[in-house]
Design a binder for these strands. Sequence first.
DNA 1: GGGAAAAGACTGTGATCACAGTAGGTGCTT
DNA 2: AAGCACCTACTGTGATCACAGTCTTTTCCC
Lengths: 243, 243
Amino acid sequence: MIRRIAAVAIRRDSAAQQGSVEDQVYSELRDRFMSGVYLPGEVLTLRNLAANLGVSPMPVRQAVRCLIVEGALEMLPNRTMQVPRMTRDRLAELLSVRRALEGLATEAACRVVTPRQILAIEKIHALSHKAFESGEMRRSLVMNQRFHFALYEAAQSSVLMPMIQGLWLQAGPFMHLALSSTAGMRWDGTHHLELLQALRDGDPTEARLAIERDINKTAEALLVTPHFAAGRTEAPERRVARG
Amino acid sequence: MIRRIAAVAIRRDSAAQQGSVEDQVYSELRDRFMSGVYLPGEVLTLRNLAANLGVSPMPVRQAVRCLIVEGALEMLPNRTMQVPRMTRDRLAELLSVRRALEGLATEAACRVVTPRQILAIEKIHALSHKAFESGEMRRSLVMNQRFHFALYEAAQSSVLMPMIQGLWLQAGPFMHLALSSTAGMRWDGTHHLELLQALRDGDPTEARLAIERDINKTAEALLVTPHFAAGRTEAPERRVARG
DNA sequence: GGGAAAAGACTGTGATCACAGTAGGTGCTT
DNA sequence: AAGCACCTACTGTGATCACAGTCTTTTCCC
């Protein structure tokens, strides 16, 4: 049974989308994972994804393989692919590595960031804060992500950036599942403001500490959610992919 | 012109090699990159690789895409694939991230490592040292890698291990190019011994410092080599793939 | 003889088909 | 009515072909 709910053509966004079809598929799927389109435990199939993206299965195969290598997708022994469930241990590890890598990136960024970039980051923070105040949690999460990535991009590191993206990619589905509801989420942008001040002062160490505090805050919010998988023996609850 | 120098079947090693052909190809290519089979700047093509591995181009395509995502391979604007050249900046970044991640893994390993595992690591160190003494640099490098990975594997982290492997994968071709000659390489296993002592003492902080010192030592040895690419405007010098 | 143009080889990419294995559903048998 | 077997639908995987580029080489003309 092939359910084509909305066969959105992959070229929808940005008229002059360039690159091969596979690159577009890969990019689109990355965005979807980071945006929480797919939920932990959800089962995806090549042909459904292809139909949903409006492309042939071929480019999807390779994009999906890459996502598996990155840990954003899991291949079960049955050869079926599913969005990995999250365990408390795994989340703690991800956050630990985030602290290390994003701390490094923040230090590097602080040393070379331009006033113009700082302004852009401030702007993104304002948007995130505004979205949070109006209860648009989804949008606030996305803007928060943009805030972090705008910062790390200033570091201009071709090593750190892909690794950090990989971490967000792995945590994406779970983060959106756990935080997209307003319940129990009392976020304040204190650490973001501290970071911005450190950037203006050109104080890498303080900037690093601010980011680490921000990640710790996220950790506190995430680790209390009841969304964790109990282990390898959890109930099936296999969600069928929507596309 | 298809040059089949040695069309080695992919199933050569270990009779009961399991998994799909693509998994085997991917695994084999990873090993080759980490072993320095391919040199920085070398150009690889799908069909040559496929012929060399004795498989059809199809599985190679996907494996190669994954390697590109991991940063082990580069795709030029011409759509040709080449082993990335190394720059001093990039190497410094890789080593910086290695310090952070392998430090983390070492701490974690130190907390859960068993005496039996410590013995195994000691054994590997002895082999590495012995190979170095007899001038077998290639073998010494491989054993050194096994030493590190045996340590990190003790940490049992499904997050850290793949990331660290990715780092070694990116640095692999350059490391072997720079260090496989005995010239200018005066390695001593002091830091390895310090690490082993810290493991026995159950002192995570000291273990972490020992690994960091070890990586710093490697950094010193690597950063003085004259093998760096000058930048984006370097001479072509495109080595043709051997397969 | 030198330079421009065309022909050739070879590249990655995408589509389509065949295949083996699995999961789930249906119908028959006991 | 319950249990078992078969059968259908669907999964990822691999192979093969066609195609549009690029790069090299050859060939023709000035």
